[in-house]
Design a protein around this nucleic acid. Structure first.
Lengths: 206, 206
DNA sequence: CGTATCCTCAAACGATCGTTTGAACCGACC
DNA sequence: GGTCGGTTCAAACGATCGTTTGAGGATACG
């Protein structure tokens, strides 16, 4: 059950927690399973994080900060170029998210996020809006610039549906599964290309 | 806390369970909260359903049987017509799902389903594939007939992304929320139209 | 060496969970 | 009236949960 015996106690807890929360949910994964997997004492979670709930929040911040920084950086690169296409902006929106969905240790943060959506909904929606809403607003402004023929309402709807397709693809819940002969990297690239083409069509149709 | 004091004990439990599972999750909603909300004795769940887990399964069967019957009926109507369009097939796929997402009593089955995906993933995926896979296959065949230019792989990807957008729209997690002045029926119709147009574009682009 | 600080540990706490039990209730049927 | 299957009830069961506690280890500094 023990994993990754290197690193500090805090880091070992964060790693094991992300993996276990993804597998069994926040309620389903107990601190005893978690600390056992991390190879640390049961009391370590409350000592280092204060409570189980604060541990969950810490996990969110770590990943979402990284995601939004990647997105903003990619967007600023796109905006700095001579010509900006819809594909470019969508790539800046989609690729960092797909990169996040599988981290180097193979655990699935997207499942954690999907769970959180299902379990806390309104609380989490508020949290995301407060902390990362400006990123979404920046992308929306760029989409609006590239799609001037759409009303605000129409644009919001389409961005929402693109987000849904992205979330679905990231969570790995769909029919499409990575084939055994294909590497993780290749599958991610294939997913990105399908998603971007699909989103371009869905966003820009008359 | 008590709701809907009419109907049999079994029905009262099913109604309260669907609502509470949607709000708090399967682990988060206890049998004590559930039976208290239903106005029945704590032991009634185990007496009538055997266990909490079997109650969950019962809730799934009830709703998903209804969804898939509606979908198949709508599809057979479309196939019986003189000319079949992509919009028609998508409507048969999407509208029954949107109808399901808000039942007459206002509880949100889709949140239950979204939770279940997050909490059981592989188990639920198998359950859905075993019990309702034939519906998906029938729709896929119809899509393939209407989109002969697409390879199987390409078609599967696009259907998967449409399903993601649909799930997202049903769950109500997105930015788009029903405005207070708009009725549930109107909002559902607006959602259906946006989804169908978006899906047509995403499915049929070259 | 003494001690101060940070951390880890085993053990226990009270609360809540799903489930079981056995008695009580109730309408139907002889 | 008697009894019998189906249902409801209060009470208890053992298990597991998140959290707290206080003793002990480890390391650095005087």
């Amino acid at each position: 059950m023990q994993v990754n015996p290197s690193g500090s106690t805090k880091e070992r807890i964060l790693g094991a927690a992300e993996s276990l929360f993804a597998q069994r949910g926040f309620d389903g994964a107990s601190l005893r399973q978690l600390t056992s997997a991390a190879g640390v004492n049961l009391a370590a979670v409350n000592y280092h994080f204060g409570s189980k709930e604060k541990l969950v929040e810490q996990i969110f911040r770590r990943r979402l900060d990284a995601l939004n920084n990647s997105r903003l950086q990619a967007l600023s690169l796109v905006e700095g170029a001579e010509t900006t296409t819809l594909e470019d902006v969508l790539s800046a929106f989609i690729r960092p998210a797909l990169d996040l969905s599988h981290d180097e240790s193979g655990s699935l943060f997207m499942r954690v996020l999907a769970r959180a959506f299902a379990e806390h909904d309104d609380t989490l929606r508020q949290f995301l809006s407060d902390n990362y809403g400006h990123v979404m607003r920046q992308f929306t402004a760029e989409f609006a610039r590239l799609l001037p023929q759409l009303t605000k309402q129409e644009l919001y709807w389409r961005i929402d549906l693109v987000s849904g397709a992205l979330t679905h693809a990231m969570s790995g819940f769909g029919m499409i599964q990575r084939k055994s002969g294909v590497s993780e990297i290749e599958h991610r690239e294939e997913t990105a290309q399908h998603l971007i083409r699909f989103a371009v069509a869905g966003l820009s149709h008359p």
